[in-house]
């Protein structure tokens, strides 16, 4: 099948199989920041933005992407770099496999949460699993990054 969509600001015609999900398509088209950690929509590694909101690309059907805007971390270089500095300053990226998806959620959260608290941040990020870090270092980084009191 074929359709036209926008990825990271560029219009593109995608070729894909009928039951294909966006994570697979994006990786095939070279957006290798998109990782997959499960087959069930449980881990958050595959998070990208669909029309600006974080979604699981493993659960988003590619066939539905006509006239939508998809954003991966490749398009958010400056912002991602900024947040990355906070994260690595805490050592909170370990194997790093969860990090791009996690960062996509964090960057969306920064736009969405008007008055972030530790509690609302934890709630917003609950769908991003990390087996390495124990989460606490991630929170230390976010608190500094977002200037949470």
């Amino acid at each position: 099948m074929q359709l036209e969509t926008t990825i990271n600001g560029n219009k593109i015609v995608l070729d894909f199989a009928g039951g294909e999900f966006l994570a697979e398509t994006l990786r095939r088209y070279g957006y290798l920041s998109v990782k997959e950690g499960c087959d069930t929509g449980s881990c958050g590694l595959c998070t990208v933005w669909l029309d600006g909101a974080p979604v699981l690309s493993c659960t988003t059907l590619t066939a539905r992407m006509e006239d939508h805007e998809i954003t991966t971390i490749e398009a958010l270089n400056v912002e991602a770099e900024e947040f990355a500095q906070f994260l690595v300053a805490e050592g909170a990226e370990q194997c790093g496999f969860c990090a791009p998806g996690f960062t996509m959620t964090v960057l969306a959260m920064r736009r969405e949460l008007k008055h972030p608290t530790v509690e609302s941040i934890n709630h917003y990020l609950a769908g991003n699993l990390c087996r390495c870090s124990g989460y606490k270092g991630q929170m230390r980084a976010i608190v500094k990054y977002m200037g949470v009191e």
């Binding site: 449980s42 979604v55 699981l56 659960t59 990020l125 609950a126 769908g127």
Partner: peptide, 13 residues
């Protein structure tokens, strides 16, 4: 619905 996995899954289902 607030404990169903995470915001990204909830934005899909």
């Amino acid at each position: 619905v607030e404990n169903i996995v995470g915001v990204q899954l909830r934005k899909c289902v």
